[in-house]
Amino acid sequence: MLSIVYFAWVREMIGRDGEALPRPAPETTIADVISALAARGDGYAAALGDQQRLRAALDQHFTPLDHAIGDAQELALFPPVTGG
């Protein structure tokens, strides 16, 4: 399984803070995973339809969306950070 966690308005629009997905092939990119989730429609489409607005972390490291999932355990999807 691949654990997915959502933050900020991504979490709010989807209506949950995370879920587990059947493990995708290692060469699957983060963008591929996002596209598959967005295809579920409703909140998923609203939150994940425009990938330009999204950032990601694989196993707690910021990772560009065109990178492959590899053997990562956790994928986090969120808007650009606004701390500090």
Binding site: F7, A8, A76, F78, P79, V81, T82, G83
Partner: peptide, 19 residues
């Protein structure tokens, strides 16, 4: 500001909110 995973949401007195 750009590398720590925090997100700010504003809560206004009139009940509106905005990320």
């Amino acid at each position: 500001k750009v590398h720590a995973p925090f997100w700010k949401k504003e809560h206004f007195a009139d009940g509106n909110t905005q990320w």
